[in-house]
């Protein structure tokens, strides 16, 4: 119980830090983003009334005579109501609408790709670590190269080979544009078809990290006493590998998801850009290019909250697989 409370408290602190960071950064930056936004808003035919000005000022600072503390409190209030302001690049859609449209694409893509690369990487790493001294060792330097490859470059290469040269997969996009999004088979298969290369990019670039980490832990676990005991017990090698070595060696990898998830999300933002994937990463870059500060901040918040949430889930799962965390008191 204490473990869960500690974790929950930690993520609340992290969430507060992210919210505060989001509030502070624009106020520390040069220039006057509010005026830029309002000018853009006017260009798009939005009404530049005091209400619009105030909502931007809460997000970005500057302008009014309101104290920082009261701005901060109103800002927090807005965020918790889900009011993230108006997007000027997608006017008149509010930021929350833009995010709601693009987030599912990214969650599904990154979620599936990450799960896949985690599972395959862990399984291969366990095997390579257990069978060290065999030809499988050659996988180690190979994956080292893979994990040093920049995501976007790998994406470019995959596009060049499988989309441009061979024509097996589409060059870009998340679905065939002649279809209208919906839960029908045609649309889903189109989405899967379009998502294959982006997912492959994420899987290939992130699998090396899991594999290497798992392999090293497996090598350590193989020399633990409980493995020797299991051997003395006359258990089959496969059983020792899975039930004893892997079961123990996987713990640090699961605990390390927190560190890796940030990298994966970062990588997938750039990957989305290469494929013009309709996810939240592409939207973030569009927002940056269009100086759509409200959207930019909203997306940053949502990405952060999503990563924090995923980490919390992983931490809770961790408690299930490591009985030692469940110690009370």
């Amino acid at each position: 119980m204490r473990y869960y409370l500690r974790k929950l408290a930690f993520y609340l602190v992290a969430l507060w830090a992210a919210l505060t960071l989001n509030f502070v950064i624009p106020r520390l930056m040069p220039g006057n983003p509010v005026d830029i936004l309002l000018a853009k808003l006017q260009l798009r035919g939005g009404s530049v009334d005091p209400a619009a000005r105030r909502s931007f000022e809460l997000l970005l600072g500057g302008g009014g005579d309101e104290s920082v503390v009261s701005q901060y409190l109103s800002y927090l209030g807005n965020v918790f109501r889900g009011d993230l302001g108006v997007s000027v690049s997608a006017f008149p859609a509010p930021v929350s609408q833009v995010i709601a449209d693009s987030l599912p694409w990214t969650v599904v893509l990154v979620g599936i790709a990450t799960l896949l690369s985690f599972l395959v990487g862990i399984a291969l790493g366990a095997l390579v670590g257990w069978k060290r001294g065999t030809w499988l060792d050659a996988l180690v330097p190979a994956t080292t190269v893979l994990s040093a490859v920049p995501y976007f470059w790998l994406a470019l290469i995959l596009v060049a080979v499988f989309a441009s040269a061979l024509g097996w997969f589409p060059l870009l996009g998340g679905y065939d544009v002649v279809l209208s999004p919906g839960w029908d088979a045609e649309f889903l298969s189109s989405a899967i078809y379009h998502g294959t290369l982006p997912a492959l990019t994420i899987v290939v670039s992130s699998i090396g990290g899991w594999l290497l980490g798992m392999r090293n832990m497996m090598v350590s676990a193989a020399s633990e006493d409980y493995v020797l005991t299991a051997q003395a017990k006359g258990l089959r090698d496969s059983r020792i590998m899975i039930r004893y070595a892997t079961r123990n060696a996987v713990l640090p990898s699961v605990a390390g998801v927190a560190i890796s998830l940030g990298f994966v999300v970062s990588g997938s933002i750039i990957t989305e850009q290469v494929f013009s994937y309709p996810g939240i990463g592409s939207k973030l870059l569009q927002a940056v290019q269009n100086n759509d500060y409200a959207l930019m901040q909203g997306i940053f918040l949502v990405i952060t909250v999503a990563v924090l949430g995923a980490n919390l889930v992983v931490d809770l799962l961790y408690a299930l697989i490591d009985p030692r965390t469940r110690v009370t008191g």
Binding site: Y11, A17, M29, P33, A258, G262, L285, M296, F300, T304
Partner: peptide, 23 residues
């Protein structure tokens, strides 16, 4: 605590946001 919070806040989106604010 500070290190762990910095660890779970994804780096690149933060960098992009900061870079986006700097002309």
């Amino acid at each position: 605590l500070f290190s762990n919070v910095m660890l779970v806040i994804p780096g690149l989106p933060l960098v992009i946001v900061i870079a986006g604010f700097v002309p």
